[in-house]
Nucleic acid binder design. Structure first.
Length: 318
RNA sequence: GGCGCCGUGGCCGAGUGGUUAGGCAGGGGCCUGCAAAGCCCCGUACUCCGGUUCGAAUCCGGACGGCGCCU
């Protein structure tokens, strides 16, 4: 299957943005971010989203386009990304996906099932009601209506229990039923997938450096603007570090303490990403050492891509 | 030199004769529409040496180390 796009997956602070731009430059590409927080307008600084210079150099999609109060999800991302990819290919350019939200990337590689249309109001009402129940209750109820799920996942956490309940209650079919019987929402998109990884010690150093850079880049002002806009309880605001920066702004934390906490939280997040990319990527994903020279990495990726495209051209001729 | 206090896993820190304290840090893992989210799992430590006791991190003695005060 000829790949239709390139995907660069990597944990925070692993150099995806820079590499993506280097690759896009070589292949006349456009970048699609699969990052659940860089998508928000007004959180670009603290999420280390590509800056205006980078975005001027290469067209970007999926960055800074959502209101902080909006909800993003794997399904929504996948629908948007399919359009972006189609558009880029229509323009005879190369889609270069880059990001750290592995779950979003998967929604393209192994599309989620097509769900019966749910009434947003009923769904919202149900969610708020479920939010009031304690975890034990949710878990027991979800397991009763969807007994296969706990067998597969082990003891359910409340987020998954609530999701399962939402489907059982609103559609009369369990999550597992849908997964088995419903068609994928769209065909899978074949991609050349690369996983960027850094040795742990270096990775930690990069994270500390990144935190410092973000603060120097005006993170505090960004957080104050969000507070002034009254969105500190919006879905976007639980991005790493924003709570700490708010506390710093209020004088509840010293700058040193805030930075230390943010580093810890970022590392905890990076660890989860490392685990995801270690086990959840397609088996043919290629591993890259992100400490190598960006130019050489980009060179190699561009070479792989051209080879794939040439093979297709060859097949078509022959 | 004398007197007093203290000595718990990487760190903090409970525990005063017989249950895995706990927190932080660290590591591993899960993941089908909230994913920068939500979860799960992992360390038998008590400075050392003797003694008392059926049994000691917990009591007694000594050594060593730290802190404080005194001369």
């Amino acid at each position: 299957m000829t790949p239709q796009a390139i995907a660069l997956a990597g944990a925070t602070a692993t150099g995806k943005t820079t590499l993506a731009i280097a690759v896009a430059r070589r292949l006349d590409g456009e970048i699609i971010s699969f990052d659940s927080r860089q998508a928000y307008r007004g959180l670009e600084i603290g999420t280390a989203a590509p800056d205006s210079e980078e975005r001027a150099a290469v067209p970007h999609h999926g960055v800074g386009f959502l209101e902080p109060t909006e909800r993003y999800s794997a399904g929504r991302f996948a629908r948007l990304a399919r359009e972006w990819i189609a558009g880029i290919r229509d323009r005879d350019r190369t889609p270069v996906l880059a990001g750290g939200t592995g779950f979003f990337l998967r929604a393209l590689l192994e599309p989620v099932f097509r769900e019966a249309p749910l009434d947003d109001e009923r769904r919202g009402a149900l969610r708020s009601w479920l939010a009031t129940l304690d975890t034990e209750r949710l878990r027991a109820w979800a397991s009763r209506l969807d007994p296969e799920l706990p067998r597969r996942l082990g003891e359910l956490d409340r987020q998954r229990a609530a999701r399962s309940l939402e489907l059982s209650l609103l559609t009369g079919r369990s999550l597992c039923w849908w997964q088995r019987h419903s068609q994928p929402e769209a065909p899978a998109i074949p991609m050349l997938v690369y996983a960027l990884a850094l040795p742990a010690e270096l990775h930690r150093a990069r994270i500390a450096e990144r935190t410092r850079t973000l603060v120097e880049g005006g993170w505090l002002d960004e957080v104050r603007a969000l507070e002034a806009a009254g969105v500190t309880d919006a879905p976007s605001f639980n991005a790493v570090g924003y709570g700490e920066m708010l506390a710093l702004s209020h004088g509840e934390l010293s700058q040193a303490e805030a930075l230390a906490r943010i580093n810890r939280a970022t590392w905890a997040y990076a660890r989860r990403q490392r685990t995801w990319f270690r086990h959840q990527l397609p088996a043919d994903a290629m591993r890259l050492d992100a400490s190598e020279d960006v130019g050489q990495l980009a060179q190699r990726i561009a070479g792989d891509w051209r080879r794939c495209q040439d093979e297709r051209a060859g097949r078509q001729r022959g």
